[in-house]
Design a binder for these strands. Sequence first.
DNA 1: TCACGGCGTTTGCAATTGCAAGCAGCGCGA
DNA 2: TCGCGCTGCTTGCAATTGCAAACGCCGTGA
Lengths: 163, 163
Amino acid sequence: MALPKVGSIGEYIREQRQQAKISLRQLAEAAGVSNPYLSQIERGLRKPSAEILNQIAKGLRISSQALYVQAGLIEDREPPSDVITAIRADPLLSERQRQVLIDIYESFRKEAPAGDEQTSQNARPQRDAETDDDPLPEEFLAALEPYAAPSGNDNVTQETKEG
Amino acid sequence: MALPKVGSIGEYIREQRQQAKISLRQLAEAAGVSNPYLSQIERGLRKPSAEILNQIAKGLRISSQALYVQAGLIEDREPPSDVITAIRADPLLSERQRQVLIDIYESFRKEAPAGDEQTSQNARPQRDAETDDDPLPEEFLAALEPYAAPSGNDNVTQETKEG
DNA sequence: TCACGGCGTTTGCAATTGCAAGCAGCGCGA
DNA sequence: TCGCGCTGCTTGCAATTGCAAACGCCGTGA
């Protein structure tokens, strides 16, 4: 009876599926799994193997790794910095655009811990003593300021080290 | 071939284990799986689930991802040099956040199409005729709108208890 | 009204996973 | 010669995966 920590993976899949606006059977078809089984997976009644997970990821057109992390099958030691790394490495962005993207990304990360309860080992050094009602906190708006108002402080080189 | 054999996950595990100079039972203990089962896995008689694979990776102190790639459970790990890919692969972003980031990024890309400044370290973008005053077109603002809306009812996860 | 097709869910079952127990071989000390 | 501990391997067996078939529900058209 041990359905230990499968809770969030099913929800995650269902969310992604509904985001894509496809039916359960459609995803089952695309993923190559039976629709009853997918139904049970989404409701957390079954713990799909990695193979099934991989096929579902394909059917959803999302990263397999994202799904594995959700399933707690990969320690997410790297993913956080991937986006920032990619932004930094993109040669087509201006320095300011880069900074805006990074700021927004980091504000997202701070504000909405999407899916945080599946793994017990979740490093969380940052304190959260504030309940965010607004989806976009000040940091986000602050990140936009240099764009909204060209004059002022464009020197926001407060780099945050990652990885 | 630079890439090791993808077909035999068992061989890979055995190689890693022998490289670490530990016995089968030791690895089984460290990984929390039974030794007979590990024996069968190493000889390709069984196809371990992702959970087992993950535990074995832990026991071997190697990356889970490396093992998954070996098992063919992860498509060739694309280097996250692509910002879009990295955003999509980040499991800690909500779908909406992801969309916002992608929209913003794409609006940036449309704006500065040429690859003039190839060095990212060079924080010295051209500013002679640059659209510094209006670098964020409507697309950017449009991307923000769903967030600017203060309504906070995006609850989709309807808990349905079934007996 | 009934029939058709789609939706998600439930049920029953073959196939498989994964484990506890046991087997055979090897090296070492008494 | 035993016994002990280590190595890896084989053998049943409970538990689980994953699927085919069938169920109930709802909207649409004849």
